[in-house]
Design a protein around this nucleic acid. Structure first.
Length: 298
DNA sequence: CGCCAGGGCTAGC
DNA sequence: GCTAGCCATGGC
């Protein structure tokens, strides 16, 4: 991927962007701290920074940043080094994915901070996206650090130490509900180095998954999300109720279980499973009913 | 009021 | 091994 990159004041402008749609990428449920502005741009907090991103044709404008931060952080965050055209071409050999990709051609998989992703997806269990966003926002306001951008105050996502210092009572103010004990266990295990988030890259995916799942409240689905959205394990295929419905309804044409869905993905999509999952999840939300297999009574 | 939510834990087979 | 019931909270 070759881009022409220039700096203009507080903005970094990138020419030559392809396969990128902000709404599809930032509102598909992989991240929770981006909000759309009136002009269609998005403002969000990531890696202790607040930026605003706008996409006009093939021109991506990132405001409130520097060339150094673009190279060190945002290039990888938005996965700009990857050829999504090639991935989509490969996956489109499958007719169902072809349709799903057509429905979300501009989806990219972000590379987010591992700690934030871990806590975010612990919060995601048995919860809805708007509520997940609220809880993460509450946690950031309670424990993070303020940053002012265009007269508005934003808050960084709290560090491990910030959670260690907090008691259950404070965490409960975030409305995280029964997940507070999970968040505390995650903070303790990471703080005590029982789980080293910076060394996950050293292990193979099977081991990383089990290491993450040693944290209470982290099961297969949450572990897969952390691996896919923060450490680039694209063979992961996070299997939630929607993905299960897609595989049952569109592929296998029968009821199944999560274990079989995992095997199916590994065989069908291999190293591209994570990308396939994104396209399918996005498609399923709007095209697959939640009671596709509910048998009619009477 | 009851139901459910990008799941996971626990108890009971 | 497998699965039903439970979990805080809020929206419908």
């Amino acid at each position: 991927m070759r881009y022409l990159v220039e700096q203009s004041g507080s903005k970094v402008i990138v020419h030559g962007i392809k396969d990128f749609n902000l709404k599809e990428t930032l509102e598909c449920g992989q991240c929770f701290r981006w909000n759309e502005e009136d002009d269609g741009s998005y403002t969000g907090v990531a890696f202790d920074r607040v930026i605003n991103v706008k996409l006009d044709g093939d021109i991506l404008t990132i405001d409130n940043t520097t060339l150094a931060d673009f190279n060190d952080i945002w290039y990888d965050y938005f996965d700009l080094g990857r050829d999504y055209g090639k991935i989509k071409e490969t996956l489109s050999q499958d007719e169902i994915l072809k349709a799903a990709i057509k429905y979300g051609e501009g989806i990219r998989i972000l590379r987010q901070d591992t700690w934030e992703t871990l806590i975010s997806f612990i919060i995601s269990q048995n919860n809805r996206i708007p509520q997940i966003k609220k809880v993460i926002e509450n946690l950031s306001r309670l424990l993070g650090h303020p940053i002012v951008y265009k007269d508005k105050t934003y808050y960084t996502f709290p560090k491990v130490q910030d959670f260690i210092m907090a008691d259950v009572e404070l965490l409960n103010k975030s409305k995280c509900g029964f997940r507070s004990k999970y968040i505390i266990d995650a903070a303790l295990k990471v703080f005590n180095d029982e789980v080293n988030l910076f060394e996950l890259q050293l292990y193979d995916t099977y081991d990383v998954r089990n290491m993450l799942m040693s944290i209470r409240g982290v099961g297969p689905k949450v572990a897969d999300c952390v691996m896919l959205y923060s450490i680039g394990r694209y063979e992961a295929f996070p299997t939630d109720v929607w993905i299960k419905r897609v595989v049952e309804f569109l592929y296998l044409k029968r009821k199944t279980n999560n274990s079989d869905v995992q095997s199916f993905a590994k065989e069908k999509f291999g190293d591209l499973s994570g990308f396939a999952q994104q396209y399918l999840f996005n498609y399923a939300k709007d095209h697959v009913s939640k009671d596709v297999f509910k048998e009619r009574k009477n």
